[in-house]
Structures are given as structure tokens and as C-alpha cells.
């Protein structure tokens, strides 16, 4: 998986990070999942021009990075990898929404630029929170947590398999791409036309593999239920973690903290 790894799809690293031993890692996955969902809901609930009011929310990912020992570079690379989606989503705003919203140091800033910034900030916050959740919990334990929270077993099983066979699919894709590039030397050879059959081929291989895996599972008595993975019990720590962050998100949502802080500092009460 060399080349694909170099492009930032190093899933194995996420697993290694998830295997660390910190108090945050030992927390019940349900607590972390609920806090992350709450966090995302808070971020999304802000007004479309909200920008500075959301900044204090960055405390959550920062605390997780610090206490969960997640390397910042690792997180940034992953966020960058998916950032084109958010940029594309917000790109039209500065052109469509040209009314001047604020003037900063004599430079007029349009509402479009502010909402664009707001989209980017929301994106960075939610995506990094989700990535951090996986990095400090591990995909498997996360799935176990979901199952315990009442997510249907069929969905959880699918997610687990998705994660397991992502590696196999990546390796298979890479072998296919390599085999193709080794036999396409001239400038005309790297045409788009051969990608269609390649994707089709990959799909057929995947279907055949799915069938073989199912056979292997039924040979070992699979009946639709995945057993195992005993979660740590929910204790006071989890309740404290959940309520503490919920209270903080509520505070940030209810009061514009940066604004209040500015008022306080320049004494504008």
C-alpha cells in the first residue's frame, strides 16, 4: 500500500493511535461518541454568519489532541485530504453574497466571505472531531459503542466489514493500478478509457470476495450476530465527561464568548 499510504490514507496509523494508553482512550466509547455528536450538533446549529462565536468550540478538539496524544500533523493531513469538499461547497458564497457585513481596519468584508469562513471553520471543527473520535477510540470499539447505544446490528456489522476490507480493497486497487502503469509506457497509453473496465473489474472481484468471506463466516457458525467486545462499564468519569462538555457547548452556544471577552477587555460595559 506504499503509494497510497504516502498520499495520507494510512489507516494503520489510526489503529496504532487508538491503541495508546491514556485516560481518554479508556473512557467508554459511548461517552466519546455522544460528546462528539453533541459537538457536531452545536457547531451546525450556529447562524450562517457566525464565525468568532464558534472559535471557543475549538477547545474541545484541542483538549482531545492534548490528552489523547494525537499528533497535530497527522490530524491536519487528514483534514486537508477532505478539505476540497468544504472549499467547493462554500466557494460560491463570496460571489453571490456581496453586501458589506463588517468593516475591519477600513477594509469592507462582505457577508459572503464571512459565511465562507464560517463553512470552513465548521468543516475543520466537525471533521477533526470525528477523526479524533476514531483516533482515541478505535473503530472497533466505536462500533461496539454504537451497538450498545441501539444502532441496528446490521449497520454496525457493515461498518466493521467496511473498515476491515478497506485495507484489502486498497491493496487490490493499488496492484491493479501498478499492473496497468507498468504496461502503459507511451504518452497515449495513460488514457481514461481503461479506467472503466478497471473499476468494473474491481467491483466483480469485490463481489466474489464478499461471497467467499460469507462462506468462511457461515462455516464458522455465523448467524447474523456478532458476539464479543465487552465494553468498560459506564462510571462517574463518563458522566462527568459528558455533562462537562455538554455544559461547555451550551455556554458557547448561548453566549458569544469572544465578544463578551472583548467587551470586558476594552471596558465597554
Amino acid at each position: 500500500m506504499g503509494a497510497l499510504n504516502q498520499r495520507g490514507i494510512d489507516l494503520g496509523r489510526t489503529d496504532r493511535l487508538a491503541g495508546q494508553e491514556t485516560p481518554l482512550h479508556h473512557l467508554d466509547p459511548r461517552a466519546k461518541l455522544l460528546v462528539t455528536v453533541l459537538f457536531a450538533a452545536t457547531v451546525v446549529s450556529f447562524d450562517k454568519y457566525a464565525l468568532t462565536a464558534m472559535v471557543p468550540l475549538a477547545l474541545f478538539p484541542m483538549v482531545v489532541i492534548a490528552t489523547g496524544r494525537v499528533p497535530v500533523g497527522y490530524l491536519l493531513r487528514k483534514v486537508l485530504l477532505v478539505s476540497p469538499f468544504a472549499v467547493l461547497l462554500g466557494l460560491a458564497n463570496p460571489f453571490l453574497d456581496r453586501g458589506v457585513a463588517v468593516t475591519f481596519l477600513d477594509v469592507p468584508i462582505s457577508g459572503g466571505w464571512i459565511s465562507f469562513g464560517s463553512i470552513l471553520l465548521r468543516f475543520v471543527l466537525t471533521v477533526s472531531a470525528a477523526l479524533l473520535l476514531v483516533a482515541v477510540t478505535g473503530f472497533q470499539r466505536l462500533c461496539a459503542g454504537m451497538a450498545r447505544l441501539g444502532v441496528p446490528e446490521a449497520v454496525v456489522v457493515q461498518l466493521l466489514f467496511l473498515y476491515r476490507y478497506l485495507f484489502v480493497l486498497l491493496a487490490e486497487t493499488q496492484r491493479l493500478v501498478r499492473a496497468r502503469s507498468l504496461r502503459s509506457a507511451g504518452p497515449a497509453a495513460q488514457s481514461l478509457a481503461s479506467y472503466g473496465p478497471m473499476v468494473g473489474h474491481l467491483l466483480l472481484r469485490t463481489l466474489a470476495r464478499a461471497q467467499r468471506i460469507y462462506q468462511a463466516m457461515s462455516c464458522r457458525g455465523f448467524d447474523g450476530h456478532l458476539r464479543g467486545e465487552i465494553l468498560p462499564a459506564w462510571s462517574g468519569k463518563e458522566t462527568f465527561f459528558l455533562l462537562g462538555w455538554a455544559a461547555y457547548f451550551g455556554l458557547v452556544r448561548g453566549y458569544n464568548l469572544p465578544y463578551l471577552l472583548g467587551q470586558l477587555l476594552i471596558g465597554g460595559w
Partner: peptide, 22 residues
């Protein structure tokens, strides 16, 4: 193909898969 047979997230879970189903 071992990759078809090993589908759980850890080796332990994979070996435990059958016995748990029993």
C-alpha cells in the same frame, strides 16, 4: 486465501468468532 478467512479487527476476535458463535 487467508484474507477471506480473517475478517475481524483483531486476531483474538477472529479466532474467537467461531467459539462465540457456538
Amino acid at each position: 486465501e487467508a484474507d477471506d478467512q480473517l475478517f475481524m479487527p483483531t486476531v483474538f476476535d477472529d479466532v474467537a468468532f467461531g467459539p462465540r458463535n457456538l
